[in-house]
Design a protein around this nucleic acid. Sequence first.
DNA 1: ATTGGAAAGTCAACAAGTCTGACGTAATAA
DNA 2: TTATTACGTCAGACTTGTTGACTTTCCAAT
Lengths: 171, 171
Amino acid sequence: MQKEGSIVGNHSENLLFLTDDQIRQGIEALYFSYRAFTSDPDLILQDINYGRAHHRALYFINREPGLTVTALLDVLRVTKQSLNRVLRTLIEDGLVDSRVGRRDRRERLLFLTEKGQELERRLSEPQRARVRSAYRNAGPQAVAGFRQVLESMMDRDTLRQFHAMRDDAQQ
Amino acid sequence: MQKEGSIVGNHSENLLFLTDDQIRQGIEALYFSYRAFTSDPDLILQDINYGRAHHRALYFINREPGLTVTALLDVLRVTKQSLNRVLRTLIEDGLVDSRVGRRDRRERLLFLTEKGQELERRLSEPQRARVRSAYRNAGPQAVAGFRQVLESMMDRDTLRQFHAMRDDAQQ
DNA sequence: ATTGGAAAGTCAACAAGTCTGACGTAATAA
DNA sequence: TTATTACGTCAGACTTGTTGACTTTCCAAT
C-alpha cells in the first residue's frame, strides 16, 4: 500500500497490542479474572442462602448510607420487583433498615444495621484483599493502566455512574 | 517506628495506589466495566431467547472446535446437567454439531455449524470492538498493566486455565 | 474373556434470580 | 383537584444453576 516508511497503519509506536490475538486474550482475561473476583463472596453467600444480588445491595447501601430505593435501582440496573425481593429479605433478616424519608415521605432511606455492616465486610473483604494483592503485585504503573482500560470500556452512562460514585466519596 | 528515611511502609516508590480508596475504586471500575462489557451480547441474546450461558458455550466451542463436553465443563465450571440443557438447545437449533468421539466413543466432540459461527461472531464482535477501542484509547502501556493486574487477580487454577487457552492458540 | 467399576453424557425435578405486566397506596407537584 | 412520582406487591415466565438417577461406553483386574 505505502511505498516506504514504517509498517502499514503504525503511527509512532507499533500496534501489536491491537492484534486479534491480543484482543482475544484481553477478553478471556476479563472473563476469568471476574469469575475469580466474585468467587470468594459467592462461597459465603451460598452458606447463608443469599445471592450476588444481596451482596450488591449491601455493598452500595454501605457505600452511601441513606440512599433511596430509586437511587439503588439506578446503580444496579435491575427492576424494582427484583430489587424489592432482595431488600425484603435483607430487612426481614435485620441487615437493612428502611426509614421513611424526612424530606419526601414517599422515599425509603436505606441503612445497614450493625449486623448488616458486619456481613458486608465479611463479603467484601476477600475482594479487597484480592485486589490489594493484585495491585501490590503489579505495581502502580500497571494499576494506572488497569484503571484506564476499564474506564475506556464503559459507555457514557456507566462512566457517569462510576464518576458519581468516585466523587461523592470525596465528601 | 523507623528512625529516619522514607514514609513508613514505603520501599522505593510511594504506595498511594494501595489506599482503601484506590482499592474501592478498582472494585467499582471492575463491576461497572464488566457490566458494560456484557451488555452488548446480552441485548442480542434477549431477542433470540438465549442467555449468557449460550454465548459462553458458543464462544469456547468456536475457540477450540472439537472439544469435549468434559473439557467445556472444566472451562465453564458449571455442572454437566446445567451445560447439557444449554447444549441441547444449541444442537436442536442447529448451531452446534455434536459428534461421537472416534478415539473414545463416550465422548462428544463439539463443533459450531455455519449458523453457529455466524451467531458467535455476531455476539462476540461488539465485545471485541469495545475492547479494541478501549485498548486503542488507553495505549500499549496501559494495556500491559491491565493484563498484569487481571492475571494477578486469578487464583492458581484459573490462571492455569487462562494460560492453557493462551497456549493452545499458538498452534 | 468376563466382569465390575469408573467415566461421559442425558433426563427429570427443583430452586434462585431475573424479567414483564398490572395493580394499589401514599405523597408530592401542577 | 388531578396528574405524577416513589414504593411495594402479586402473578407468570424464562434462564441458569443445583442434585439425583440413569444409560452407554471404556478399561482394568481377575
